[in-house]
Nucleic acid binder design. Structure first.
Lengths: 197, 197
DNA sequence: ACCTGAACACCGTTCAAGT
DNA sequence: ACCTGAACACCGTTCAAGT
């Protein structure tokens, strides 16, 4: 930190932090390993010690993205209080908020497939998904939601919120229509899955 | 066509056709203008006459992708016959089928936003979306679906199918779970939007 | 009107060599 | 154990010049 020592000290963390910034400001196409190295003040070959290639850095970004997404959705649901519809809506809102504010990061998170199978990444995504599964189980326990495989139901919720975010990020749906769309989705999901009184 | 004349004749169409192949085989990252030119047998600067830059070619691909998606969904619904749930399910199935078979093309189609606003592209997406709107209106006309803004309802259907495709393409959901997921989504959408008898 | 060839400024990746 | 510098093979984009 004093005078640019030969060893950066925590190059890996510095690269990841800078990459997150660049992703927000320039998008995925604008993310270059060489520029990252430049901005962090290190030679263009230095990142190689910490990330085998560009994709390895993207995988690391995706993994931490899934962690943060799961945490934000869980926190939003917890903050929303006791009413189940409010919690469901808050969770969905937190998801699309994350997904539309960090659109490029979401892109990286969803580029996981493509032939490759990266175990730590899949597991991180599964942990985020489990937040939704727990939410469904709560609804079932409190009698608001019908019985049935909670994973199957959570998958529909996941898909719907992800789809809404994709439509907005693609410019197909205007951002100002986002809130009502999320409310619609929550209400309809609840109505389609509510215990038949 | 005889002996590689100086003028290719229909370079634009040839580039687009080759690009579609490359997209399927190599993915979006593997799509290079220079390689396309090589494969078509033309100098690397020739595409410039027909596409201002790489993005312009991607926009053209996206536009024709939306046209084809709309046509396939419409055709699938028509083929499904009279039962409304079957038509809804067939439409959703056609969407995710397209989206998972041409995952890279879907990526291009959904990369539309990102600051840019490309009018012909937005209009092509809107035309594809209108197929779903018509499907909703049919459901309302036949009394299966409740009244209400058909665009709002179609948007939810659009988001859900797109989200399901994204989950599969990202490797988060196994392809073999696709069919049941689509059935679940259709059934639940219908149940959440059915006229209360 | 359409295409070529050379040139420019960028990449990601590799590898011997330095500290 | 970590980083540098030069090198390689690729890009997209531009522009004068050719047919």
């Amino acid at each position: 930190m004093t005078d640019r020592p030969y060893h950066h000290g925590n190059l890996r963390a510095a690269l990841l932090a800078q990459a997150k910034r660049a992703l927000r400001e320039q998008g995925l196409d604008g993310l270059s390993l060489r520029e990252l190295a430049r901005q962090v003040g290190v030679s263009h070959a230095a990142p190689r010690r910490h990330f085998a290639d560009r994709q390895a850095l993207l995988d690391a970004l995706a993994e931490s993205g899934w962690e943060r997404l799961g945490a934000e959705v869980r926190a939003a649901a917890a903050r929303a209080g006791a009413d189940y519809e409010a919690r469901l809506c808050a969770a969905a809102r937190a998801y699309v908020r994350f997904a539309t504010r960090d659109a490029a990061l979401l892109e990286v998170m969803f580029a996981g497939g493509q032939g490759r199978q990266v175990a730590p990444l899949q597991e991180a995504a599964a942990r985020a998904f489990s937040v939704l599964v727990e939410l469904i189980k709560d609804g079932q326990a409190s009698g608001v939601l019908e019985r049935g495989d909670p994973e199957r139901m959570a998958l529909l919720l996941f898909a719907t919120t992800q789809g809404i975010a994709a439509l907005v990020n693609a410019g197909i749906v205007a951002p100002k229509r986002l809130d009502r769309l999320v409310s619609d989705a929550s209400a309809r999901f609840l109505r389609g899955s509510r215990t038949l009184a």
